[in-house]
Design a binder for these strands. Sequence first.
DNA 1: AACCAGGAGAGAG
DNA 2: CTCTCTCATGGT
Length: 217
Amino acid sequence: MLDHNKIYSIMLNRYGDLGWWPAETRDEILIGTILTQNTTWTNVTKCISALKAEHFLTIMEIAKLDQTRLEELIRSSGYFRQKAFRLKSICARIVSDFGGIESMDNMSTEEISDYFSSLKGIGRETLDSILLYVFNRPVFVVDAYTLRILERVYGSRIHPDKIRAGAVLDLKASITDLKNYHAAFVETGKNYCRKQPKCVECPLYNECNYAIDLSSP
DNA sequence: AACCAGGAGAGAG
DNA sequence: CTCTCTCATGGT
């Protein structure tokens, strides 16, 4: 059960290096992890472009940006009031506590983890995304697609903690591998996992158990 | 036109 | 511990 090496080799063979996280700066990645919560990436890129055009695409600038002004700029990512408030709060905390992302690089993964998980707006998945894509720490990001895909492969739902631990321990992957592994789950999920009744083009087609309910999230 | 997207938090039981 | 509800725009 749960052979990460097998799943990853199939996915890597299909997708290769997907170049995640797509961004020019580390601040941009952090901001993106908040904005992309439960929305499509195409909705987020509009916000990223809008912020970039006004030169607000840094933690420092968002920290001092007007609340309603930020709401307007990130509107298309959905939950814009919540996200504007939380994103601004998070950026303000980072600025006042550390000055910026770079000042946190010498901290241990556990210290970074404890810090970010105490901030409102950062749940388990966003936390892991920040650890992996902003700080390059050996963490595997488990999202809804990962749970759904592995459920279809193995027939039953596997606990996120088990998947996370397994990916880092069993896979013995490099940071780049862990980044691409998660990216591959998202790519597979959004392209094939919802199409019915057959996903013949899905890289994991031969591994999937189609006896289970395909409509389950 | 219902359904869902690269979730999180608060509350109930 | 596991549901359930809310937050909200945009594409299919």
